[in-house]
Design a protein around this nucleic acid. Structure first.
Lengths: 338, 338
DNA sequence: CCTCGTCTACGAATCGATTCGACTCGCGGC
DNA sequence: GCCGCGAGTCGAATCGATTCGTAGACGAGG
């Protein structure tokens, strides 16, 4: 069932069918309708591979997600969902690749085989070989997170530095003098993961400026790690009365550790941070946090990418999201020392 | 950078390059190496669209996920991840489509345009128009869950009926006489969602057989609904001492409601059910539950699909997963009535 | 010396679409 | 009456691969 079949049954040439469908040249109303009725009857759809070959574009976007062994966070999941929705609106398909580096097979299939018109790269590292590869290939791409040369690439990112700073300021304003930062895992930090680095910077800068004490703790992305991380904070620094967290997956564990230690939130201990709204609302009491605008970021990434595909040589756009901190119920005045 | 370029630079014809690459005819070692070195130098990869057009297959699988507005459960996420991993192992790409019905644009693009060699259909309904469409198209597919005519199609599924039954029996064995079933949402049940129907059947059959009382409650897939659902159970049926749950997303709410009601688990109230391991371990104390083997299901689905693509006319295979119930700490003897 | 088979390699056809150039009408203007 | 123009259509080339038929070279065997 190809365009030739439609042409034969309509009694016209293949090119006429093509023009009737695309509208790029005029076709008489009579033949157009005849062709259309044959198409409707047979349920014809142009073959995507043939079209891609001729047109030189696949109408497909690649979405590179973090390797599957690390479970996606809700934030990432929201992001993926919004990318799919935005792509769908633009009549684009989404090809998924779980790739940690540029030698990954799926990455190579997608990029090397030119299976996509452009790529959205999640969880980009400060120095990322996949970015180099895409640049070499001349394939348009958008990164989620910045590399070390942010001016040269197209990206969207969350301003973790300023969010960590604002959370810290908020807690200091409430009278807290000894703060902990619950950061992402030590491995992520070591591998050059931007948000973890910038959260650290923002936190350190804020505590320095405000003249209070701050301790950073790295914590893996799961509840168990969150629990032991908070236990360690309480053990090694019992004077700490508040925590800033950028590790949403650890939140259930943070909660459990504080509950078990009998530290009521926010009367005895305050928590503020950055999280997907889902996690913030799952916390008890609900978490004062900057809600990561994953859905907006996904839509923006797709929009940027479509622009880059249309005009690869235009200056690469970026956008830094700095969502407001939603005041909920997990922060309060520092407890008065007994 | 196409095969012609490689041929020219190697001083051979295009067909020789193709045969050197595929190995389908012999090529002398000398020319093979010459060609290979040119390929390595230029970083040539065959164009996927051209290959797909000629070969009549795209080396791509379609994965139809539930519409994005409903957040994926962890179970579904695990499934998606394992499908991607299995596809990657078989050198296949995965095209994502968030489609609720057969008129969805992305579904139509993928299926109508023959962008994929086969489709994995998640969250299939007992009567599902997408299944009809795929059958009409003659496109190989595997469903996750069964339709009303399970013998005709290829599927993998979880035996919710027998798991609900086993959980119920386990609780009755412990002395519980008044049980509640926390099922999925009423909308899902109404739309003919198999697992919800079969969990109900298994539960009802078990309570009838064992001569105890059972009450079914429908509950949306989120923590808030879980909380109010349990509150309603406790209010309307205070004699209930145990619950069977097949709604993993409601678990945090179930937990919270029981905690707030002061019902210690398992001393005063027992909970058993079906859940992804992640949720079972997140529960406190850890949940006695059948761990849905999402990873195995994903691998099986891909394997089945590859088989169907190779031999579309072979009898469609199925597999019903009945994972064992992992005894953890959320079930205990029924409290003695005061 | 001729023939036959094997090893290599080439040329041309093919997959299903898009698109450019050209051709045929019919009609209005001069 | 001839020319020009636009609307409508067709044929052929093209995209980048795979694959079938075939042809040349060369060695072995009769």
């Amino acid at each position: 069932m190809n365009i030739g079949e439609i042409a034969r049954r309509s009694g016209v040439s293949r090119s006429t069918v093509s023009y009737a469908l695309s509208g790029k040249r005029s076709v008489s109303e009579a033949t157009r309708q005849r062709i259309q009725s044959v198409i409707d009857e047979l349920g014809y759809r142009p073959n995507a591979a043939a079209r891609a070959l001729k047109e030189g574009r696949t109408r497909t976007l690649g979405l590179v997600v973090p390797p599957v062994r690390d479970r996606l966070t809700f934030m990432q999941l929201d992001f993926v969902a919004s990318v799919m929705a935005a792509a769908d609106r633009a009549d684009l398909d989404v090809l998924l690749s779980p790739a940690a580096d540029d030698h990954d097979r799926s990455f190579e299939r997608i990029v090397g085989g030119r299976r996509v018109d452009g790529v959205i790269l999640m969880e980009v590292r400060l120095k990322d070989p996949r970015v180099e590869r895409l640049r070499d290939m001349g394939l348009p791409f958008v990164t989620i997170g910045r590399t070390t040369r942010p001016q040269d690439t197209c990206w969207v990112d969350v301003d973790y530095a300023s969010l960590a700073e604002r959370c810290t300021n908020h807690l200091v304003d409430l009278g807290h003098r000894h703060l902990a930062l619950v950061n992402r895992s030590a491995e992520l930090v070591a591998s050059g993961y931007g948000p973890a680095h910038r959260a650290r910077e923002g936190f350190n800068e804020a505590v320095a400026r405000r003249g209070v004490e701050g301790f950073e703790f790295c914590c893996a992305d799961n509840a168990a790690a969150g629990e032991s991380c908070v236990q360690e904070i309480l053990r090694t620094h019992p004077e700490v009365t508040a925590a800033v967290t950028v590790n949403e997956a650890a939140l259930p564990g943070v909660q459990r550790a504080l509950d078990r230690a009998g530290l009521e939130i926010p009367a005895r201990f305050s928590v503020a941070g950055v999280a997907a709204r889902y996690w913030a609302e799952q916390f008890h009491p609900e978490l004062t946090a900057a809600d990561v605008p994953a859905a907006d970021m996904g839509a923006a990434a797709v929009e940027f990418l479509i622009g880059r595909i249309a005009e690869p040589d235009s200056p690469p756009p970026h956008h830094l999201f700095t969502p407001p901190i939603s005041l909920r119920n997990s922060t309060g005045p520092a407890p008065t020392p007994r």
